[in-house]
Design a protein around this nucleic acid. Structure first.
Lengths: 234, 234
DNA sequence: ACACAGACGAGAGCACCGCTCTTGCTTTGT
DNA sequence: ACAAAGCAAGAGCGGTGCTCTCGTCTGTGT
């Protein structure tokens, strides 16, 4: 009965690994990454602290696994908003995806901090996290791509010293879009997350009160920057 | 009781406090906030670890002091760029201040992470940090204000649901600017630091190669968003 | 069928951390 | 001059990440 790769032992390993990750994620969501302790996880799981090291070689490895999960969770949220908005105007889709990302960030501040805050140790972004990290960006790009297909994208030219870079970016990430929009896409991606990060990390305290309306307005501005006509008719 | 306490005791206290902060800042710059340990600082200062608690009640208080210093250092840099650019075109001044902020961030990544990355413990932003934190924002606003005085600011209207908020923001932070630009100022401030944060934290790895040209282009876009005519003639 | 290599769990232990408490000594203000 | 307050040092508590060793269990090849 070896339907699973190597018997029941391997299955137990998968289950325990998942249990550790689940408990760690719970603690992460409650207290943040700095307070996440292997010993505490082991304790509530009823195992010796040393046993955890059979599953995750170090605390950083556990954290890396959680980082990938967080990226995937956020990416999934963005993709869901993307799908749900098929057929709508490009500006409205843009807003929908941006608001989905913001909503996720506000609902999972510690996870957000884990992936977009300061890198926890010195710094590290193992190559394994890259594909998961890219999903959010691609969801945003998809809105732009669809708008371009529908002829609703206003492409602004790019300065001469960025032309080569824009071409490279476009070839790497958006082969079916005009190269000139590639830098704008990347810039807007970073700016959007800057906006969200400021809100999540409390930088808007006593500065922005009407968060929803403010975000909506700012996101309209970002849409304009990439060449979309914003949903807001104002 | 006496504002300048006569005696060598008070003077020694100031000197030791400064020495602790200096050593802590050195370690922060080298290793980051997570690795900053009171014991290690005490060790290299040749004092018992418990003695440090006479000067900083807790690790977080030391960190808070460093946060204020970092805000001030960054604010000073921005203000210096602002002063150095008096008389230049608004677009050029904008670029100059933005590049000064970016330059500081790239030169002091750990300090940058301390103030704009994820809040180190659970969260914390003692009220004492607020004035220092505001300096950067005001440097940016000054460019906009001067442009407005010179009649070089294009003010875009604000949606109806933001008018009250815009008026409140303007009254609080930019009383001599049209209310409609206030939300744009705040949004652009967050977006600029998002841009810089992504670069500092390595999110642009393998995505943006020509960092300088890219940043310059993005900053031109931000200038446009607040209503400035960018320096780039393209 | 059985023995053996490998995976596994538990415990002890190391070096480090933030922080507190107590004990003396020195400076300060009256 | 003397009491009060500030200060440095040491010991100690509970916590951390991580390693090592030592029994136990298990999956597998002969």
């Amino acid at each position: 009965m070896t339907s699973t790769p190597h018997g029941a032992r391997a299955r137990a390993r998968i289950e325990i690994t998942a249990a550790i990750k689940e408990e760690a994620r719970r603690r992460l969501a409650e207290q943040g990454a700095a307070e996440l302790s292997l010993r505490a996880v082991a304790r509530t799981l009823g195992m010796a602290s040393s046993a955890i090291y059979r599953y995750f070689p170090s605390r950083d490895d556990l954290l890396t696994a959680l980082i990938i999960d967080a990226y995937d969770s956020l990416g999934e949220t963005a993709e869901a908003a993307l799908k749900a908005s098929v057929g709508a105007l490009a500006g409205e889709r843009w807003t929908a995806v941006c608001e989905a990302i913001r909503g996720w960030a506000l609902a999972h501040p510690h996870e957000y901090a884990l992936i977009y805050g300061s890198p926890v140790p010195g710094y590290a972004a193992p190559a394994t996290t890259v594909p998961a990290a890219a999903r959010v960006g691609f969801a945003l790009i998809d809105v732009v791509r669809d708008a371009h297909r529908a002829g609703e994208l206003d492409v602004a030219p790019v300065p001469a010293d960025l032309e080569a870079e824009a071409a490279r970016m476009a070839a790497d990430f958006v082969p079916d879009l005009p190269p000139a929009v590639a830098p704008a896409c990347v810039a807007v991606w970073a700016q959007l997350l800057g906006l969200i990060g400021f809100e999540v990390f409390g930088q808007f305290t006593r500065i922005v009160e009407e968060r929803d309306a403010f975000f909506r307005h700012a996101v309209d501005g970002l849409a304009r920057t990439v060449g979309l006509r914003p949903a807001d008719a104002s």
